[in-house]
Design a protein around this nucleic acid. Structure first.
Lengths: 197, 197
DNA sequence: GTCTATATAGCGATAGAC
DNA sequence: GTCTATCGCTATATAGAC
């Protein structure tokens, strides 16, 4: 536990920072997150974060790209071991989505990116990411339009429930518990509740 | 076009500011929005905005409350003129949601509120708003759990598409157009596209 | 590869005049 | 009821030492 950080290869350090950034951006969003909080989460100084990524904006964009890559590779891994049957593939991808919920920061960073549509530089990057997911569902998963609709809509609802932290109220508030139950059933509600902690 | 604003009753002025704030917060989110931008949008000075609402945080909370009230009253108006049949009521509420899309700021401010779950003061307010919508669907609209699920999931997907501004790409990018089409069909895609401008 | 020190800018909030 | 002036804080980014 030295105050000065150990000397580490830049590549590895970048990865540590991106992991920390995923948590911080996911929690607070782009504007409210500070490079200093990312630095602390990564155990280094604030100027060094800026040094390695140029600007906060660049750091966010690379974080977005990283989270998107993680999402796509998780889906592709799920598809690789899924049967040909359409319904079974849909169920398998749904399960893959729940795996992603466990990481929390990944889905929340992505959602915060989508919310930045009006930003002239981040907006286009986020939209491109959205389209990559869409193309994967259409071309690689072979989903029908109805399946694509369901998958994206359910995904966005899960994202929002996760972001709002309603899962935390579920223990105290019967309505909150009922909401979680109505929308995704007890099993998924449980995953969301744990991920909200 | 005087540089100094006209003298107006505080109640009216508050309403102007809240309307401006709905646009600004919806566009930029809580953290990126500034009280100065809200002031300019309302045609008054920045300190006066703070004077009338105390803090930026309070302004956001009141804006959130106002947007929620608008959403609930729009839904209730739709239900009042809807038949008893469950499917027809669902369709009528869906149409009401599309009316809300026209205003853009309303739904986006609400969504930005949901994203602030971790914030110790705004988070609880946002979650409470979410639960109010849920209770309305369950107790007043009489929706089944499956209907509640569909309605909320579709709503969140619409919100996200709206926030990301993907509708704007649809003219240039065939995939973006296909995405809008797959998820909600040509008619809704058109509403979303116009609202993104 | 990493830090300390600091320049610089933007924003929320206060004071006080009109 | 509304403004101008301004304080004080926070945050990004730079400079330069080690």
């Amino acid at each position: 536990m030295t105050s000065r950080s150990e000397r580490i290869p830049a590549d590895e350090r970048r990865e540590q920072i991106l992991a920390a950034a995923t948590t911080v951006f996911g929690e607070l969003g782009y504007a409210a997150a500070t490079t200093d909080r990312v630095a602390r989460a990564a155990g280094i100084s604030q100027p060094y974060v800026v040094r390695l990524f140029g600007t906060k904006e660049q750091l966010f964009i690379e974080t977005l790209r990283r989270t998107l890559a993680r999402v796509l590779s998780t889906f592709r891994a799920a598809l690789a071991e899924a049967p040909e049957d359409g319904d079974a593939r849909e169920a398998r991808l749904g399960a893959a989505y729940l795996e992603l919920v466990e990481d929390r920061g990944t889905l929340l960073t992505l959602l915060h990116g989508f919310m930045m549509g009006p930003d002239p530089v981040i907006g286009p990057v986020a939209r491109d990411g959205f389209l990559q997911v869409f193309r994967m569902l259409r071309d690689e998963a072979g989903f029908t339009p109805a399946q694509i609709h369901r998958f994206l809509a359910d995904g966005m609802l899960i994202n929002t429930l996760l972001a709002s932290g309603i899962g935390l109220d579920a223990r105290r508030d019967p309505d909150a518990a009922d909401l979680m139950d109505c929308t995704f059933g007890a099993k998924v509600a449980d995953v969301l509740e744990r991920a909200s902690a």
